[in-house]
Every structure is written in structure tokens, then in C-alpha cells.
Amino acid sequence: MVPESGYRFLDREYNPHPDAKKILNYAIGTQVKNNDTKSVAQYASFNGLLWKKGVNEKWTEFLADPDNVIIRYADVLLMYAEANIELGSSHIDASVLEAINKVRARAYGVDVADVANYPAVISTNQDELRLIVRNERRVEFANEGLRYMDLIRWRLAEKALVGNIYGLLDVNVKASGAATGPLVDEVTSKGLWFWGLKPEIDDETGLPDFTNLHDAGLCKVIAVRNFDATRQYLWPIPAEERKINENLGQNPNY
């Protein structure tokens, strides 16, 4: 979610703006230290975003373990859709669209037939549907441990897991307590908060590209990642397995 000034979540105001040194704790009705802004807490969110999925009131008492999800019905529906899409146009029928739309309709809290109140999929083009399903899995299963293997299956890991990881610009705090630095000078003082520009979207993969924000000086590189396509699509065969079966070789580059 994009942070909003005064956004209320779990009885606290969420505001990562560098000037928001204190926020309102609604439960006790008083201002408290804002650990969600980089001008106060060094390890506040590096991108200024708030994670809400799977978080509820129990987190205000202790860090609750998430439910152990084996499989979700949304995964079954999207697997069905993806399989038929990859089989070709002769397998793309109303059941494929319904599978995708059931996932979307549930997210919007409406019936699948209520197409006026959610973005129902109507295309039967294989390339368009492939991109739709891949993006649907990305948003539906965020932080559920499926993304990496999806990227491996689609042979997109060498694109999605390579390059820069971006975050908010630096914030400095003067002795007077005033927030300064690039984030203030280049973003908030120019009315560009939150980030000021939308990232580009790759039409082929659906992956976001934040290069335009970085080139405009609105974010910084906080890490660089790499994916070695010559070896990481295939994992090594364990030595124990090769000892049991001497006919087994080893995968390339291991």
C-alpha cells in the first residue's frame, strides 16, 4: 500500500514521512515515537511501505506465527488456468476465464458474476492471458513462498532476480531535530512524496522497472542481486543420491 498521512492500522497511525517524528497511538490517545520513519529509526521500512497481509490485532501483543498454509484454492484455480493457457488456444475456454475471475472476485469481496464490481478477465488471447495469470499469482500469493518457484518455472528468474533493489533516499537529522538530506531536498520539499513517478512496466514479463525513478534522483540503490542462469535453474543432485545410484551424473556447473 502507498503510505498516507494519518493512515490508521492496528490502532496506530502509519506515516513514514521524514517529518512525522511522532504518530498517534489511538489505543491510548497520545502521541508516541514513530519507528516507521527513517528519520527516527534506522531500520524502518526501506521503501516506506506497510505490510498488512496476514497481520492482525494479535501482532500488537506478540509476534504471532502465520498459519501453516499447505495449499489454497486460489492456487488450484490459477494452476488450472495456467495449464490450459500453456496447452494452447484450443484449451482456452470459459472455464479458464472463470478460474481467474473467481480469484479476482474473491479479492474484491463480490460474486464472480458481478463483473461490474471487479476487473473481470475477458480476453482469450494466449499471450495476454499468460501475462495476466503470472501477475495474478504475483499479487495473490505475495509473501507466501511461491514466487521463486514460479519464476523458475517461467524462466523469468534471470530477469526478475537480477539488478538493483531500490529504496528511499537517505534522511539526516540535525541537532535541532529537523529532517534533512536527499529525501527531504529532492522528494518531500518538492511535493513528490511518496516517490513522485510510477515505475515502468515491462510489457513482456509484467515486471516493474524502477530505473526511471533512480535516474530522476527519487530513490537509491540499496542492494544488487544476481541470478546465475547457467546453474540456478537446475539445483545440484545430492551426493547421497549419486552414491546410491552410480548411473546418476551431476547437473552442469556443479
Score class of each variant (00 low, 15 high):
V2P: 12
E4A: 09
E4P: 01
G6C: 01
Y7H: 14
R8G: 13
D11R: 10
D11P: 06
N15F: 01
P16L: 02
A20C: 02
A20M: 01
K21L: 07
K22E: 15
K22Y: 09
L24C: 04
N25I: 06
G29K: 11
G29Y: 09
Q31Y: 09
N34Q: 01
K38F: 02
N47G: 06
K53S: 13
V55D: 01
E57F: 07
K58S: 14
K58C: 11
W59M: 10
E61I: 01
A74K: 09
A74Q: 07
L78W: 01
Y80D: 02
E86W: 13
E86H: 13
L87W: 07
S89L: 03
S90L: 11
I92T: 07
V96D: 00
N101Q: 06
V103S: 06
R106Q: 13
Y108C: 14
G109I: 03
A113Q: 14
D114S: 11
N117V: 10
I122M: 08
Q126M: 02
E128P: 09
E136S: 00
F141Q: 02
A142Y: 14
N143G: 05
N143H: 15
A160L: 02
G163Q: 08
G163V: 11
S176W: 05
G181S: 00
E186M: 08
E186D: 12
T188E: 09
L192E: 00
W193S: 05
W193Y: 13
L197G: 01
P199Q: 04
H214K: 06
L218K: 01
V221L: 03
V221Y: 02
D228Y: 04
R231S: 08
Q232K: 09
Q232R: 07
P238Y: 04
A239K: 15
E240A: 15
E240C: 07
E246S: 15
Q250W: 05
N253F: 08
